[in-house]
Amino acid sequence: MSDVSAPVIVRLDRVLKRFRVRKDNSLKDRIVHLGRQGKRHREDFVAVNDVSIDIEAGTTVALMGANGSGKSTLLKLIGGILSPTSGEVHTRGRMAALLELGAGFHPDLSGRENIYLNASILGLTRAEVDERFDDIVEFSGIADFIDTAVKFYSSGMYVRLAFSVAIHTNPDVLLVDEVLAVGDEAFQRKCMDRIAQFRADGCTIILVSHSAQQVAELCDRGIVLRKGQIVHDGDVDEAIGVLRDVLEGRDDAASEAAAVAAPINVDSVEILGADGSRNRAFVSGERVTIRLGLKSRHPIQRWAAGFSINTPMGHMVFASNTDLVRVELPVIDGFASVDFRLDDLRLGAGTYHVHANAVASDAGGVHGISHGATFTVETHEPGLGTATADVLVAVRPY
């Protein structure tokens, strides 16, 4: 989260957006239902329902949720592309929005002409575009096609050019929808690096993404939407866990009932660095400590706790628990914490999620947290996959 003293740059106050959906889509249906009766064949759909958000300058916020949860509609409301049915949206500073593939491009104009057109829509003067034109083209990587009509561009070329124009307007607020998923992996990495640079420079970024890896890597706040309403606003790790619950159909009531039924609960999961402070980015082989916060409802003599480290696809790469390492545990009565120190965690580069659980051996009942924490790993050794190693090559005559 950003410093509380940072000024609010985006404010939504009880925003509601309603769309009218027609059921009589064909001309024949409309003629048949012409008149008063036709009203029965329209219904209102509330895409965003009573949403209030304050976003401070310099923060990077992820909007997450299932398809149809209202993420993109909310982003368009912030960008001024849509007007709210009720409530108010206030923004400050220059805003650049990359919301839809090729939005603001004219298909019959060349890439060069569309740079000037799109940049002017985003608030740049012609002199400013002249000054930044070469940088825009270089970042997009499509210099060989810059004088070709964009209607002949592939979807990836559209994204490259649109994103390049947007980021070279030096916006105070950058809005990015899932369109980046269309680009190839190398360009996605390039975009993520540039967004990270924007973040370091103090730009406010609001990002719609289904990628837990992107969210964990870039964002310091996560907002999860369900049916147009906010169900979580806060820590990114917690937001990813809430999103997983939403996608898998687990509701808050069911989670709370499971916690109440278990004699011992996992209250929190933290990832600590070698210095003991919370951390979410590590180099492969660096010391990592996984701290579980536990709470028992009564004194428990025999109990155990453990964790697993999983990839974003759900594949377990490492797991351990107090039984496996043969730790003698004291009686737990109320709150306690358990630290698992991993001195040489040789994971490959990527994003990993930590799941945790606790069990009372005699009383029965297991309670766990899915996606309790998220961290990323970098590695300097050449290689791919979820493990890393020092590789020595010897070549001999055969």
Rank of each mutant, 00 (worst) to 15 (best):
R280G: 01
R280A: 00
S284E: 03
S255A: 14
I271L: 08
V260I: 13
E256D: 14
R244V: 12
V231W: 05
S277K: 13
A259I: 00
I271T: 08
G249M: 09
S255M: 13
V283E: 10
V242A: 04
G241E: 02
V269I: 09
V269L: 08
G249H: 11
V288S: 03
A254W: 10
L243Q: 06
E248G: 10
Q229K: 15
I230N: 03
A257N: 08
E238Y: 02
V266G: 02
I230H: 06
A253R: 11
I271K: 05
D245I: 09
L272Q: 10
A262E: 06
D237V: 01
R250G: 07
D233I: 05
G234P: 04
H232I: 05
A258V: 07
A262M: 09
V236S: 01
S255V: 11
N265E: 12
R244P: 09
A254M: 14
V283I: 11
A239F: 03
A253L: 08
V231E: 06
G241T: 06
D237L: 02
I271F: 07
V269C: 05
S277Y: 08
I271R: 05
P263D: 11
V231P: 01
A239Y: 02
R244M: 08
V231A: 05
V246R: 04
A281F: 11
G234S: 06
E248W: 07
V283D: 09
A253S: 08
D233A: 14
D275T: 06
S277Q: 13
V246Q: 04
E270Y: 09
I230M: 11
N265A: 14
E256M: 15
V283H: 09
R280Y: 00
D245F: 08
V283S: 09
R287G: 08
V260T: 12
D252Y: 13
V269E: 03
V246S: 03
S255R: 14
G285W: 06
G285R: 03
Q229T: 15
D251Q: 11
A258G: 05
G241I: 03
D251S: 10
F282C: 06
A259R: 04
Q229G: 15
V288M: 00
R244A: 12
R280E: 00
L247K: 05
V288C: 00
S255W: 06
N265L: 10
P263V: 07
V231G: 03
A258M: 10
L272N: 10
A254Q: 14
I240R: 02
R278M: 13
S284A: 13
L247F: 09
I240W: 01
V266Q: 01
V236Y: 00
F282V: 06
A262I: 08
E248L: 12
D237Y: 02
A254S: 15
D267G: 08
L272E: 02
I264S: 00
E238T: 11
N279A: 14
D237A: 15
I271D: 00
V231C: 09
V242Y: 00
I230W: 06
I240P: 02
I264Y: 00
S284C: 06
R278E: 15
E248K: 03
S277C: 08
L272W: 10
V246I: 14
R250F: 14
V236G: 01
L272T: 08
V260Q: 14
A239E: 02
D235A: 07
A239W: 01
R280Q: 02
G234M: 02
D245W: 09
D235E: 07
H232E: 04
V236L: 02
N279Q: 14
G234H: 05
D267Q: 13
A253M: 10
